[in-house]
Simulated scan of single mutants.
Amino acid sequence: MIRTIFGRVLAAIPVLIGIAILSFFLIRLVPGDIVNVMMGEDFADPAVEAELRRIFGLDQPIHIQFADWFGGLVQGDLGASLRTGRPVTEEIFERFPMTLELAIAALIVSLAIAIPAGIITATRRNSSIDMGARLVSLIGLSLPNFWLGILLILLFAVYLRWVPSGGYASFALSWEHFQFLLLPAVTLGTSLAAVTMRMTRSSLLEVLGHDYIRTARAKGLSERAVVAGHALRNSLIPVITVIGIQLGGLLGGTIIVEQIFSWPGLGSLMVRAIYQRDYPLVQGLTMFLAFFFVFMNLAVDIFYVYLDPRMRQRG
């Protein structure tokens, strides 16, 4: 098992290097740079532009800029924001708790819906409950986040006025904070629940067909004991994979939802950095999200050890 984890860590290194190269060069394909954004179209002084590019280091050849940035990246230095002058790491970790809070809340909403629904549909296969839940999951999977978010705002914020339409309150275990968190968490959690429910159902159905499940039933165990004590744990392995990938992808997948609900997380920071052509901030955010995604995949692999005894024996 240790050898497998070490191999996956090594395999992630070229992936991260490739992401670093792409993030550096792709953002520079967007027309204009931060100097053009700062000066606008109405005022253009070549001397001032040249001086600003020298200050920002944009007058250097592209390969020199990449070498300087990548050298800092290897040492853990993501550079400084061109717009604010603050270190990129400070900008990221200032917003990271908000995005992480939203991602965890969305994941909780997803699991609260998906796991019970997946178990019920698997144990009542081809029943009306199963067909209805599968239809609802297909609808939830098909709904775009931006459309669902707007609908929720119209219903619960505009018409019913139960919750605010957007914004953020400082983290606290209070109803005020929960009101701001509810709609974006439900918007994100709905599509996640659809995927997790379908995976739980298919995985549990496969496990329920194994010989040891029939043996447990032949011994006289109740259906609840068979499902909860024998089938569910073994069926959770692929579900854990999906959940880990979802959590890793959620940090980068909250961009649209954060914009709709004015949530001050990494997504809104990324949008602002792209609009302002803040190259170090865009590159730093991309690398941070990529590293977190790789870390979550590695954490899922390690968690397998506690779910599957066969992997402990291999390790």
Rank of each mutant, 00 (worst) to 15 (best):
E101R: 06
Y304I: 08
F25S: 08
A194P: 04
G315A: 15
L107N: 04
D278G: 02
I153L: 04
R314S: 15
L152S: 08
A112K: 01
A231M: 04
P116M: 02
M199W: 03
V186H: 01
L181I: 03
D301V: 08
E258I: 02
R224W: 10
K219C: 09
L148E: 03
I153D: 07
H63V: 15
V207S: 12
T187N: 09
V195K: 03
P280C: 05
F293Q: 06
F24K: 02
E223G: 10
W162H: 00
V37P: 13
R198V: 11
P61A: 10
V242K: 07
T99I: 09
A218S: 15
D130L: 01
G7S: 14
L26M: 14
L182I: 01
I260A: 10
Q283K: 07
A80S: 15
V300L: 09
G249P: 04
Y279S: 03
L236F: 13
V74Y: 11
V158C: 10
L183P: 01
G132L: 13
A114N: 10
R201Y: 07
G7C: 10
I119T: 02
H177V: 00
M296S: 07
Q283S: 04
S142P: 03
A103I: 00
P14C: 12
W175D: 10
V9G: 13
L16S: 10
V158S: 15
Y279R: 02
T200S: 12
A290H: 02
G209A: 07
G284F: 00
I62K: 05
P309V: 06
W69N: 06
R277Q: 07
F43E: 14
I115W: 02
T200W: 00
E91R: 03
A80R: 09
P46T: 12
D308I: 05
G118I: 00
A80E: 14
P61L: 05
S202W: 05
R272H: 15
A133D: 05
G7Q: 13
Y168K: 00
A169L: 04
L52T: 06
I150E: 08
R3A: 15
G166F: 00
G76A: 11
L155S: 07
L221G: 12
G167Y: 00
I34L: 13
A50D: 15
F93Q: 11
L232R: 01
M270C: 14
S110R: 06
T121M: 12
W263F: 12
I13N: 14
W263E: 07
R125Q: 14
E223S: 15
S174N: 10
G85L: 06
L143Q: 08
Q259T: 14
L26N: 08
F295C: 11
F24I: 01
S81E: 05
F66A: 08
V226Y: 08
R125D: 12
A299T: 11
S81Y: 00
F70R: 05
T99Y: 06
L204H: 05
F96I: 11
F156Y: 00
D278N: 02
I13K: 09
V186Q: 03
L208G: 09
L205F: 08
W162C: 05
L307G: 15
T4S: 15
G244M: 04
P116T: 00
I139P: 06
L307Q: 14
V226C: 07
V186G: 03
M131W: 11
I115L: 14
L100E: 13
V300M: 09
A133T: 13
T286G: 11
I213W: 01
I260E: 10
F171P: 04
S222F: 09
V163S: 04
